[in-house]
Design a protein around this nucleic acid. Structure first.
Length: 412
RNA sequence: GCGAUCGUAGCUCAGUUGGUUAGAGCGCCGGUUUGUGGUACCGGAGGUCGGGGGUUCGAGACCCCUCGAUCGCCCCA
């Protein structure tokens, strides 16, 4: 390997071949399904003022201080490569007057950037598909969004993945629950893992999904959000679950599923591989395939009017890992030049084939003797070979009987 | 930021307790089978064994450092 060649940045990847096909399949399927649900396509810049993300996400977290790609541009503004879609979409919604379209169903996909240690299914530049419904306070919006996610996963052929669903309640429910958790875990602080003792200060909800056994023993008896839900919050959650049942979406209550950021309200969800499933095995520790929730508090943190919204995102790389290997498509036709004197005829034929909608490639390099062999070996559906025999131009078509007349006609 | 495992041809890997000019398969290039064909055979190109230092008469193998990859922890918007 050339030692003088610059290496790719850590955590970035070059996707090629069957993996690139799987990646494209995920995106194409998403585009198709989002049309079925009438989500409108949007494109946002990959970078924004740092403020967009720091205000949306909350200044204090590690996330902002350590895990964003931020830099100063020549004008001295702090800019950041987008680490998520939601904040940028919210900014676009507010700055472009998209309120007029509310409730607005939006879909997008593209690269995101997070300064993290790469591991299985986690990269510094990664890609997500994303769907949001902005300006809809009704639980039906949550149902709609989840039904789309469910159908998408089915159409991708991904099995053994279940929707885990929870509610964080409204702002009051959430705050009371949080206080109860702090009190409860504070009481057993000395027996918690070191990490969770820190979490008690920074992010107490996260103790609930700690991987440490020392913490897990206390989780079962921890205060439940259900005991803190207001009637309104409870009613909202009931509407979501009954809507999912009506839509035929299979789900499972996950009381420990939480969101750290304050702007999340009500519904929180993740599609997670079932324990012991092939999907769980494939994804390793990064198990969540698709996740999201309701973020009714976000628009205000960006200086906008209170605007209810709900959305989800899913990592394309992770989905691609779960999609069946599709290989790369074989050529409809390979055109072989067995005598270089026929090059022009071959190029002309190639144009006609492609113009008629057939995928075609030209084999005209290397040993003339081996070109046909290579064409056969490529697995192409048909082969058209141009040669010169006894001073006369000839061609030969190797194809199914059904294809041969069409090719003959086209080459005439 | 922390930890574990791993870096030998384009790819997948061998390389015995440290011992001559570092190997195989696949792929690539060329040539035979005077050719209608995914075959077989022959030949060829391609490696400062990730990099640096050390131990030794001698290091791809052992030690240290460094870089990178993979997986996990933290974090997860």
């Amino acid at each position: 390997m050339p030692q003088n060649t610059p290496k790719a940045i850590r955590g970035t990847q070059d996707i090629f071949g069957p993996e690139a096909e799987a990646f494209a399949f995920v995106v194409e399927t998403f585009e198709r399904v989002r049309r079925l649900y009438r989500f409108r396509r949007a494109e946002m810049p990959v970078f924004e003022k740092t403020e967009v993300f720091s205000r949306a996400i909350g200044e204090t977290t590690d996330v902002v201080s350590k895990e964003m790609y931020s830099f100063e541009d020549r004008g001295g503004d702090s800019l950041t490569l987008r680490p998520e879609f939601t904040a940028g979409i919210a900014r676009a919604f507010l700055t472009n007057g998209w309120q007029q379209h509310a409730p607005l169903k939006l879909a997008t996909h593209g690269p995101l950037f997070r300064y993290e240690r790469p591991q299985k299914g986690r990269y510094r530049q990664f890609h997500q598909i994303d769907a949001e419904i902005i300006g809809a306070a009704e639980p039906q919006a949550d149902v709609e969004l989840l039904a789309m996610a469910d159908q998408l996963l089915k159409e991708l052929g991904i099995e053994g993945v279940t929707l885990h669903l929870n509610t964080l309640g409204d702002a009051d429910s959430r705050e009371n629950w949080r206080a109860a958790l702090i009190e409860y875990f504070g009481g057993v602080k000395g027996d918690l893992s070191e990490d969770s003792q820190d979490r008690l200060e920074k992010n107490p909800l996260r103790i609930l999904d700690s991987k440490d056994r020392r913490d897990q023993q206390f989780v079962a008896d921890a205060p439940k959000i259900d005991d803190f839900l207001t009637d309104e919050a409870l009613g909202f959650f009931d509407s979501v679950t009954s809507g999912l049942d009506a839509a035929g979406v299979n789900w499972k209550r996950a009381e420990s599923l939480v969101r750290g950021l304050d702007y999340y309200r009500h519904t929180a969800f993740e599609f997670i591989p079932d324990e012991g499933s092939a999907a769980a095995d494939t994804l390793g520790a990064q198990s969540t395939v698709l996740g999201g929730g309701r973020y009714d508090g976000l628009m205000e943190s960006l200086g906008g009017p209170a605007t209810p919204a709900v959305g989800w995102a899913a990592g394309i790389e992770r989905l691609a890992m779960l999609v069946e290997d599709r290989g790369e498509p074989l050529a409809d036709v390979i055109v072989v030049v067995e005598d270089d004197a026929r090059m022009s005829d071959a190029i002309s034929a190639l144009g006609k084939l492609r113009g008629s909608g057939m995928s075609a490639d030209l084999f005209a390099a290397g040993s003339t003797r081996k070109r046909f062999d290579k064409a056969v070996k490529s697995g192409a559906r048909s082969i058209v070979a141009f040669d010169v025999r006894d001073g006369e131009p000839t061609h030969r078509i190797k194809a199914d009987e059904s294809d041969t007349p069409r090719l003959e006609a086209l080459l005439r």
